[in-house]
């Protein structure tokens, strides 16, 4: 869970930085160059397979944990005051992960399927496809909700991953938690800004 989670966090950083090129507002020239590189470089294409493997392993681990842990308390409490001792998102990682997965299916359909498995790039660019997809207000709302789920998932997941691999030390944990909180807010906010910016024609 922790190892695959940290791997997926490193992917988010790459994905977010590259996509943020759209904010250069150069009509997508820089972004399309980046997308072209990511789509053709053999190292990146290999990492894409590793990424899918990492994602599937993360999902498998999560489901296994959820089912196993569920069975450890056969008789449920009548009253649970969870808010008194933990954050709701730390107790809802399975729910947040499921929402993310649903979002991800839609997201892969929109852009990964378009750029990898169709001839789409022949007639128009990935940038143009983003512009087209984000004209639909429902899609924009679903993407923003997906980003909010991602934010809360990361808010627990980032520091939790370090705790799981044993990196809880009084000297480093406060820094890890601070970086985790900043990461969990900034990355989803930048992602969410993309559909919003396209929808409101803030970038052309």
């Amino acid at each position: 869970m922790a190892i695959t989670g940290l791997f997926l966090i490193s992917f988010l950083l790459v994905h977010c930085s590259l996509n943020a090129l759209i904010f250069l507002n150069d009509g997508g020239v820089a972004f399309n160059e980046g997308a072209e590189f990511m789509g053709t470089n053999p190292v990146i294409r290999t990492m894409e397979i590793v990424l899918f493997a990492g994602l599937l392993l993360h999902i498998y681990d999560g489901l296994r944990l959820w089912f196993e842990n569920k069975s450890k308390r056969p008789v449920a409490y009548a009253v649970v005051d969870g808010a008194a001792n933990s954050k709701w998102y730390s107790r809802s990682m399975g729910l947040l992960g499921t929402l993310l997965l649903l979002f991800l299916i839609l997201h892969l359909k929109h852009f990964w399927y378009f750029s990898r498995l169709t001839e789409g790039l022949e007639d128009h660019t990935l940038y143009a496809e983003m512009q087209a997809v984000f004209m639909n207000p429902v899609v924009v709302i679903v993407y923003v909700l997906g980003c909010i789920s991602l934010g809360y998932h990361l808010l627990h997941g980032f520091s939790s991953a370090f705790q799981s691999i044993g990196w809880n030390h009084p000297k480093y944990m406060p820094t890890i938690k601070t970086i985790g909180a900043i990461f969990s807010i900034v990355i989803p906010a930048v992602f969410a800004a993309m559909p919003i910016a396209f929808y409101f024609h803030l970038i052309q």
């Binding site: 730390s90 107790r91 627990h156 520091s159 044993g166 809880n168 030390h169």
Partner: peptide
């Protein structure tokens, strides 16, 4: 069960045992 680091144990422990022990 397995630990998912919610920290509820540490908050409810009458002796205030830290989850740093879990990392250790």
């Amino acid at each position: 069960g397995a630990c998912s680091n919610t920290g509820a144990c540490e908050a409810e422990c009458p002796k205030g045992i830290s989850i740093e022990n879990i990392a250790r």
